[in-house]
C-alpha cells in the first residue's frame, strides 16, 4: 500500500504540474501570442504522463479496495487543473494512516 500510494502521489504531482504548465502557460502563449511551442512539446507529453497516472490510480484503487465510482472520480480529477492536487491530498488522507507498530513479544 505504501509504495503504491507513493507512486500515485509522485505521478499525480507531475501530471498536475504539467497540466498547469499546459493551461496557464502554454495555452495563453499559443492563442494570445501565437507561439505554440509549449503546447506542442508539453501537450503530447502530458497525454502519456496521464496514462501513467491512470495506471497508478488503478493500481492503488485495487490495493485499497475502492469502489469503482471512487476510482473513476480520482482518475477524472487528474484531468482538471488544480483539482488534481486536491485529489492527491484527499487520497493521501484516506490511505496514509500512520501504521501503529506496537511492539510484539517475539519468542526467538
Amino acid at each position: 500500500m505504501g509504495a503504491a500510494l507513493t507512486r500515485y502521489r509522485v505521478i499525480a504531482w507531475i501530471v498536475g504540474v504539467v497540466l498547469i504548465l499546459l493551461v496557464v502557460v502554454g495555452m495563453p502563449l499559443k492563442y494570445a501570442f501565437d507561439n505554440p511551442v509549449v503546447v506542442e512539446t508539453v501537450g503530447p507529453a502530458h497525454g502519456f504522463l496521464y496514462m501513467i497516472y491512470l495506471v497508478a490510480a488503478f493500481d492503488l484503487s485495487r490495493r485499497a479496495d475502492w469502489p469503482l465510482k471512487r476510482m473513476l472520480l480520482v482518475m477524472l480529477a487528474g484531468t482538471v487543473p488544480f483539482v488534481s492536487f486536491y485529489a492527491e491530498r484527499r487520497v493521501t488522507a484516506w490511505l496514509d494512516r500512520p501504521v501503529t507498530r506496537t511492539p510484539e513479544p517475539v519468542a526467538s
Partner: peptide
C-alpha cells in the same frame, strides 16, 4: 502535433 494525440486516444 496531432500524431501524438492520434496514438494516445486509442490507448485510452
Amino acid at each position: 502535433l496531432s500524431w501524438g494525440y492520434a496514438v494516445e486516444w486509442p490507448i485510452f
